[in-house]
């Protein structure tokens, strides 16, 4: 079983990719070993810095390089851009340097959080 080692409340990142129909922009090889418990959705990076838990997946519409720095300093496990927004190449490069997977979903922030909650994941949203 893919999620045989998952603790209660954790789901494999691969399942998040599937649920949200994500395209993986960087970090494909990191996804198999990644188990996630929570997502934190916000466009304000100060909200993420103040309220997210380490290991959470950052869901955001902010595609600047500061979203990568935020995920890095707050020890978040991956970044998921909503609404099909794709970051510029320098943002990719920064994510690669920090080894943080970058994904993009066509869903909105609200839709993404709802879909993850339906699948038993904690998804705090501060849009």
């Amino acid at each position: 079983m893919e999620d045989a080692t998952a603790e209660r409340g954790q789901i494999p990142m691969r399942k998040v990719v599937e649920i949200l129909r994500c395209e993986v922009l960087w970090g494909e090889e990191l996804l198999d070993s990644l188990l996630v418990r929570a997502c934190f959705a916000a466009d304000l990076m100060s909200d993420v810095l103040a309220y997210s838990d380490p290991g959470a997946v950052l869901i955001t519409g902010l595609t600047t390089v500061q979203s990568i720095h935020t995920a890095n300093v707050a020890d978040l496990s991956a970044i998921l851009f909503v609404g099909g927004k794709r970051p510029a190449p320098d943002v990719y490069a920064m994510a690669e340097e920090k080894r943080i997977p970058v994904l993009v979903t066509p869903l909105s922030m609200q839709e993404a959080c709802n879909a993850l909650r339906r699948n038993g994941m904690s998804a705090e949203s501060r849009p």
Binding site: D43, L44, S46, D47, T64, T70
Partner: peptide, 17 residues
Amino acid sequence: MRARGFGAGLGLPNIER
């Protein structure tokens, strides 16, 4: 600044916390 995800008045309180 707000469009870049900052300037919500949480910076200094976040540093203190």
